[in-house]
């Protein structure tokens, strides 16, 4: 699998990042096999979080066995110094390791949170202290929120080294500021910040729980995923071709082999094929009926 420099961290990440939440749905033996599978295919960047059920515990054994082969990203939703310090210790304990390569502010949603994190007694104080103590090496941030908030975070966090945010052909086809993640990509490239793409495989939100109860969903994803080899490949290719360092895999372990296959075979994507995908999805959800042309 190809690798790309993760910003200026000095690490070359595989173009697919293993979203380890997939392990949460497997028994320990299956989880161990999954880790062996993704390593065998050349994935060297893993992403985990304490909120993903038992994921940290299930990742632990194989993570410890292969610690040198894995660039480990973890994250916290805590916004204060005390909370973040406690969560980092907890993650290190549950994972059973003494070092996390990349520790990320998880799921930034509001400007006020940015005030808290960057302020006195904020989470970033704990991050920096951990960096000085050798518990973590790099600081990152993840967000599903509007691009402007992520741009503000870049301005306000000088030692930010990675960003994780949504990127797919539906998002890329929308021109409004709320979907302008291209601006984030450009800015990140200027600043030498590594970029990790999520929601690359999203087909759309799940139907309402009235229509489809959560227990009846066929996949353990936050969103309804594309699920055929061809669609997964074109979605992977599209996300990787936007200039992201790495594309994060889907939450459901059943789809992992197809994502790995797409990532292994990635060889760029022509711009005319990228536009073709954007157009296809734009017309699928277009509010304007009766269009004969593109």
């Amino acid at each position: 699998m190809k690798t790309r420099p993760l910003g200026e961290t000095g690490h070359d990440s595989s173009i697919m990042t293993f979203g380890t939440i997939a392990l949460n749905w497997l028994e320990q033996e299956g989880a161990d096999q999954m880790v062996e599978l993704v390593l065998d295919r050349g994935v060297n960047h893993f992403d985990v979080a304490p909120m993903y059920g038992d994921t940290e515990l299930k990742l632990g054994p194989k993570l410890r066995q292969h610690r040198d082969e894995i660039f480990l990203g973890c994250k916290t939703q805590e916004r204060t110094y005390e909370g973040a310090k406690r969560k980092l210790e907890q993650s290190l304990n549950r994972l059973g390791v003494d070092h996390i390569d990349l520790y990320q502010v998880h799921g930034l949603e509001y400007e006020e949170e940015l005030d808290t994190i960057t302020g006195e007694g904020g989470a970033l104080e704990a991050f920096r202290e951990a960096k000085d103590d050798g518990l973590i090496s790099h600081i990152g941030l993840t967000s599903h929120s509007e691009p402007q908030l992520i741009l503000d975070a870049i301005d306000r966090i000088d030692d930010l080294e990675t960003l994780m945010f949504p990127m797919n052909p539906v998002v890329a086809g929308k021109d409004d500021a709320d979907h302008d993640y291209e601006a984030v990509l450009e800015r990140a490239a200027e600043e030498g910040i590594g970029t990790l793409g999520i929601k690359a495989f999203a087909k759309g939100p799940w139907p309402s729980t009235d229509e489809l109860p959560e227990a009846d969903r066929p996949y353990a994803n936050w969103y309804e995923p594309v699920d055929t080899p061809r669609e997964i490949e074109e979605r992977f290719d599209f996300a990787a071709a936007q200039g992201l360092t790495s594309v994060v895999s889907m939450g459901d372990p059943k789809l992992m082999a197809m994502v790995l296959d797409a990532a292994t075979r990635y060889d760029g994507m022509d711009e005319s094929a990228q536009r073709s995908l954007v157009e296809k999805l734009r017309h699928d959800e277009s509010p304007v009926p009766e269009q004969l042309h593109h």
Binding site: D270, S272, A273, L277, K280, P289, L292, H294
Partner: peptide, 20 residues
């Protein structure tokens, strides 16, 4: 330039042409 390759004739397009 090549704008689209391939051209995605979606269900909406197919329906619109069938309507014509």
């Amino acid at each position: 330039w090549t704008l689209l390759d391939p051209v995605p004739w979606t269900e909406n397009h197919v329906r619109a042409h069938a309507n014509v």
